[in-house]
Amino acid sequence: MSIIVDENSRIVVQGITGKEGSFHAGQMIEYGTKVVAGVTPGKGGSKFQDSVPIYNTVKEAVDATQANVSIVFVPPRFAPDAIYEAADAGVETVVCITEGIPARDMLNVYNYLKSTKTRMIGPNCPGIMSPGKCKVGIMPAFIHEQGTIGVISRSGTLTYEAVHQLTRVGLGQTTCIGIGGDPVIGTRYIDCLELFKDDDETEAVIMIGEIGGTAEEEAAEWIKENFNKPVVAFIAGQTAPPGKRMGHAGAIISGGKGTAAEKMAALRAAGIHVCESPADMGKTVAKVLGK
């Protein structure tokens, strides 16, 4: 099994004719993902790579192809509109890769989506992938392998590092989710953990966090009460200074809150295996599972 996306997911790519959108749509198709439609307003009626139909609106794409997952490659000022359009068309999951969307726009999107059935992943994330089944994102496919570990991360390349380490120690993944590095995101650690809890194939979960906010602490609290599979964690930014935004809009220690030390302590107190070194992520999961 896997969570959120699998071999039956039907993907519509919003912004399929843009530079990023077309490149990654191609990569997703190459991996075997069912990319059933693209959307670029004004280019409806044409085809991507001579095979994927392009529509003017998400509604048309969904009606014609039964797409149920959308991926958004649209610049920051138009991305909120793209997410609203996907939700309006009734897609189950919208994955927003875009980095740099104003927080106020995302607050509106997030609170609006609560009144719909649409789940948002991201923004400012590498996407979601269930190895061996489908890839809805920009992650390099070749480092992944189908297996039993769930991966949840706020980061991009650090997630690749973790996945690569897992694959190297012989541990494949059920689903890898980049939840995004922004302060307002659609799907959080706990949302993913709830799904991994009920996924029989997932044996253990690795959580990759970073400074800023209290999402890791909230997840730790939830895990203590509700989750009985092993969890390994790494928190980036142990050496980050307070008051500075470390690349991601959400990675900032403010008012003394959101430090790596606090997060690591909270995770440990919840019985989670915390690695101090990012080089130990794969090894630690293997050790915890006795492999």
Partner: peptide
């Protein structure tokens, strides 16, 4: 010098370790 913010922070951390 690193590509990606999370990996950049992790690299800082491992330098210290």
């Amino acid at each position: 010098m690193v590509n990606g913010a999370g990996l950049a922070m992790a690299t800082m951390d491992i330098i210290k370790l």
